[in-house]
Nucleic acid binder design. Structure first.
Length: 561
RNA sequence: UGGGGCGUCGUCAAGCGGUAAGACACAAGCCUUUGGAGCUUGCAUUCGGAGGUUCGAAUCCUCCCGCCCCAGCCA
């Protein structure tokens, strides 16, 4: 990752690593991993984990593995492994040549299971799923031991082998760890470690009909890869005794599992289930809808990897459940875009302005700075002429206090061009202003006058004849409530009906004809935009508003109400 | 008395017995050829509550209160 990003503070995980390094627990070595299940798209919550794991690996000169946790063939697909790899790469985390799949370890995992059986620590159980649930007991009552719990090692070995050979139907038997049916921790009440699933696996095909469970697979995969610190989210905290149990019973290399609080964001949802529902029910156009908190959605919206990474380090790492204000994410975005976005002019809701004293048919080119934050980005020329368009919001016939824009008799600056003064308005039959007539001061070219007189407002504009038509999509938060998951109601009733507003008939300066996805622009006084990677074409440009500029005029208006 | 975790500003989050960092948000002001950006200032006498230990407690002890997770042959 780039080095100009803020140095993370010493969070509790780095403290643990520092301590392990001091005591030499792992010989000073640091190895982390990101272990996604390929059953969905990555979202902003995952980026916190990726940045944490990759960031730690970089900081301690260690290694970072990408390992797909693909132990459930009925839920996992190649499409997801491809998108996950693409997203992680785009984010900037590099697993180099360490791309692994838990399914690569199936043979070894099988051997470990056999070892457990031989130690008398695992047995084949013939109870049905319902019976197993019954025998498990409840949160407050202990469970009962399975009648199959004390089968002989020989019988278990034979049965397990036959499970592998495909002799039994799905759900008929399961291999269980023999631990403690009375444990207060339900995970320790003889958890299943292998189940029968006659299903095609996206990588191993039809080779297996038994598949290992998460708890058994994860710790051993970490062990096989010599991971030192296995970082996961809070809900796995009470799986840790089990993680440790398998490793201890098998006497193998033992990584340390550490849990941290997952990321929650206001005005959005993060669960895979809900995200999938939004896609399947058509509330959004797909996983990469620019309103989605998915990495694909954020990318299409115009977010940059730098902004996301910066955000990830600024939210910190701790164990307390928390919901970060989405304003922080947007702040990180603006902070990054402000430095790199090319400033251009586009009018979202055009209002025609005729400059009466400007020569008919004359077109001149005015020079515009591409980015005041970075003079190195140079300048460009923009056409100016007698008929231009400004923003409807920038004119008011009867302006309130503190309105610094155009109004009858008022003089304003056209950015990069001239001062104009409003002389007259033209209205339609229903009284709407459809055209404004102005005069300009030829001495104000470039935006200043010899007499040094000041104007309060500066407007963006486009020249009518040269402007190009574009479609602009404005986005707002997907939900109307800070926490759409609150009090168990149907989160779909909280969808923001105005999360997408499509504007057609927008006009942009000619240079935007060259706009391509992935390149950030600031539409002056409006916000940051990018060409839409899905729908923008050279003959039909479509721009997404990545995030609006902060708008203090909007605040004044709001305060006035 | 099922087990596991967590409670510091509106939201994140430092703090690790020596007298509450920082960020976002918010507010006021300056500046400005983007009402953008930038700059300045303000914003927890108090750390879930009550006791206790101590010269001194957000930090240690006790009790209480609140919130989150766990009863998939999901991860």
């Amino acid at each position: 990752m780039a080095t100009n990003e803020p140095t993370p503070t010493i969070d509790f995980i780095r403290e643990i690593i520092n301590r392990d390094n001091e005591t030499g627990k792992y010989g000073g070595r640091v190895a982390t991993r990101f272990p996604p299940e390929p059953n969905g798209y990555l979202h902003i919550g995952h980026t916190k984990s990726i940045c944490l794991n990759y960031g730690i690996a970089c900081q301690y000169h260690g290694t970072f593995n990408l390992r797909f946790d693909d132990t459930n063939p009925s839920k996992e697909e190649q499409e997801y492994v491809d998108s996950i790899k693409e997203d992680i790469r785009w984010l900037g985390a590099d697993w180099e040549d360490r791309l692994y799949f838990a399914s690569d370890y199936f043979e070894q995992l099988y051997d470990y299971a056999v070892q457990l059986i031989k130690k008398g620590k695992a047995y084949v159980c013939d109870l049905s799923p319902d019976e197993i649930r019954e025998y498990r007991g409840t949160l407050t009552e202990p469970g009962r031991e399975s009648p199959y719990r004390n089968r002989s090692i020989e019988e278990n070995l034979d049965l397990f082998e036959r499970m592998r050979q495909g002799e039994f139907p799905d759900g008929s038997r399961v291999l269980r760890a023999k631990i403690d049916m009375a444990s207060g921790n339900l995970n320790m009440r003889d958890p299943a470690i292998y189940r029968i699933k006659h299903a095609e696996h996206h990588r191993t095909g039809g080779k297996w009909c038994i598949y290992p469970m998460y708890d058994f697979t994860h710790c051993l995969s970490d062990s096989i890869e010599r991971i030192t610190h296995s970082i996961c989210t809070l809900e796995f905290e009470d799986h840790r005794p089990l993680y440790d149990w398998f490793l201890d019973e098998l006497g193998v290399y033992h990584p340390r599992q550490i849990e941290f609080a997952r990321l929650n964001l206001t005005y959005t949802v993060m669960s895979k289930r809900k995200l999938l529902q939004l896609v399947q029910e058509g509330h959004v156009s797909g996983w990469d809808d620019p309103r989605m908190p998915t990495v694909a959605g954020l990318r299409r919206r115009g977010y940059t990897p730098e902004a996301i990474r910066n955000f990830a380090t600024r939210v910190g790492v701790a164990k307390r459940d928390s919901t970060v204000d989405i304003a922080l994410l947007e702040h990180c975005l603006r902070e990054d875009l402000n430095l790199r976005a090319t400033r251009v002019m586009a009018v979202l809701r055009p209002l025609k302005v005729v400059i009466d004293n400007y020569p008919d048919g004359q077109i001149e080119q005015v020079e515009a700075v591409n980015n005041p934050e970075d003079p190195g980005m140079g300048t460009r020329m923009i056409p100016f002429s007698k008929t231009i368009y400004i923003e409807q919001d920038d004119f008011m016939e009867d302006p309130p206090k503190k309105f610094f824009r155009l109004a009858p008799g008022r003089e304003v600056r056209l950015k990069h061009a001239y001062y104009i003064t409003c002389a007259d308005v033209v209205k339609d039959a229903s009284g709407n202003v459809v055209e404004v007539h102005c005069t300009y001061d030829p001495a104000s070219r470039g935006g200043g006058t010899p007499d040094g007189r000041e104007v309060k407002g500066t407007l963006h504009w486009v020249s009518a004849a040269q402007a190009i038509p574009v479609e602009i999509r404005l986005y707002d938060h997907l939900f109307t409530k800070e926490d759409p998951g609150e009090d168990g109601g149907d989160f779909r009733t909280l969808l923001n009906p105005h999360s997408l507003e499509v504007l057609t008939g927008c006009l942009a300066e000619p240079s935007l004809a060259e706009a391509r996805p992935g390149r950030p622009y600031q539409f002056l006084r409006q916000g940051y935009f990018c060409a839409d990677s899905g729908d923008s074409r050279p003959d039909h440009l479509v721009f997404n508003r990545t995030v609006p500029l902060r708008d203090s005029w909007a605040k004044i208006q709001k305060a006035a109400k």
